[in-house]
């Protein structure tokens, strides 16, 4: 009799990590996305060592090698001053990824905290934060960046800050809606009755339940931020030459279309592939987490 009182664990207990890995590895979208993202990050970090012509990053001029088509020596061809486009694309990834990192590094913590506060406390806190969010949401990031560049000087830092100053709103909206649902859940009430602090409830009880949604949103956003950054550079508001940037390369290469198509098309493809990688990863993560939520 007494031995029955201790409920034993189910005999074949699968670890969480194994279950997650099992589902992840059987989700082609997520795997392809993850591979692209990891390769892009590695390439960006190791750029000086893996590129065939790392010196072509700067203001190098080699008129004898102008406008060469893709070949074994120059994989993506050369540009109008004879620099290796492949090397410059790989270095350009650094700027794109740095942009995503900085913008989201500011937007995610700010947006999440504001969303948690608005969703949990309600009342005037909610009114102030959410109306501010509504206002910020009404301004397109590109327009904001143009305005900032016009007032200050057109450079990368200003563009990043301009985008980050608006991007948090999306995270605020997301976290706000999740928190509002979780606020009335029994486990939150249980924590309240057990005397837990507001800080504990917000960051230890509610936040972990937002992580899956945040991961999906952030991954998708990386792709968007990279596109917005490329658009800014294309318009001449981003990084200034000669530092390689994918958007700038598309813009300068477009002057030589269609004869020297590789000068703009191949950097453009690089933007496309990286943005696609992040989007696939985000979609894959969503599928992964959806299953978990349903279970």
């Amino acid at each position: 009799m007494a031995s029955q009182t201790v409920p034993t664990a189910p005999p074949r207990r699968l670890s969480n990590a194994y279950q997650n890995w099992y589902r992840f590895s059987r989700n082609p979208t997520a795997v392809i996305g993850a591979v692209i993202v990891i390769l892009a990050i590695l390439a960006a970090i190791l750029a000086p060592w893996i590129t065939p012509h790392p010196d072509h990053v700067g203001a190098v001029v080699n008129f004898r090698a102008r406008h060469l088509p893709p070949s074994a020596d120059y994989w993506f061809g050369t540009d109008n001053v004879g620099r290796d486009i492949f090397s410059r694309v790989v270095f350009g990834l650094r700027i794109s990824l740095l942009l995503a990192l900085v913008v989201l590094g500011i937007a995610v913590p700010v947006g999440t905290t504001l969303g948690l506060l608005a969703g949990y406390f309600g009342g005037w806190v909610e009114i102030v934060i959410m109306r501010l969010t509504d206002i910020a949401l009404a301004i397109p990031p590109l327009v904001m960046a143009l305005a900032v560049a016009a007032v200050l000087s057109p450079d990368l830092i200003n563009s990043m800050l301009a985008i980050a100053a608006l991007w948090w709103t999306w995270h605020t909206r997301l976290i706000y809606s999740i928190t509002r649902q979780l606020r009335t859940q029994e486990f939150v009430e249980a924590a309240e009755t057990l005397g837990a602090s507001k800080f504990h409830i917000l960051f230890r009880e509610i936040l972990p339940n937002c992580v899956s949604a945040l991961a999906v949103k952030t991954s998708l956003d990386c792709g968007f931020v990279i596109l917005v950054g490329a658009s800014l550079s294309f318009l001449g508001l981003g990084i200034q030459p000669p530092t390689p940037d994918l958007g700038t390369m598309v813009a300068s290469g477009s002057a030589f279309l269609p004869d020297y198509w590789w000068e703009s098309v191949l950097p453009g493809c690089a933007i496309l592939v990286v943005a696609l990688g992040f989007n696939l990863l985000g979609d894959g993560l969503r599928d992964l987490f959806d299953v978990q939520e349903v279970r």
Binding site: A191, L194, H200, E205, P208
Partner: peptide, 18 residues
């Protein structure tokens, strides 16, 4: 009434810490 993202131990520690 138990937070799905926290372990059993973490849930029981809430009142202890508080």
């Amino acid at each position: 009434s138990l937070n799905p993202r926290r372990t059993v131990g973490q849930s029981i520690e809430v009142p202890l810490a508080a």
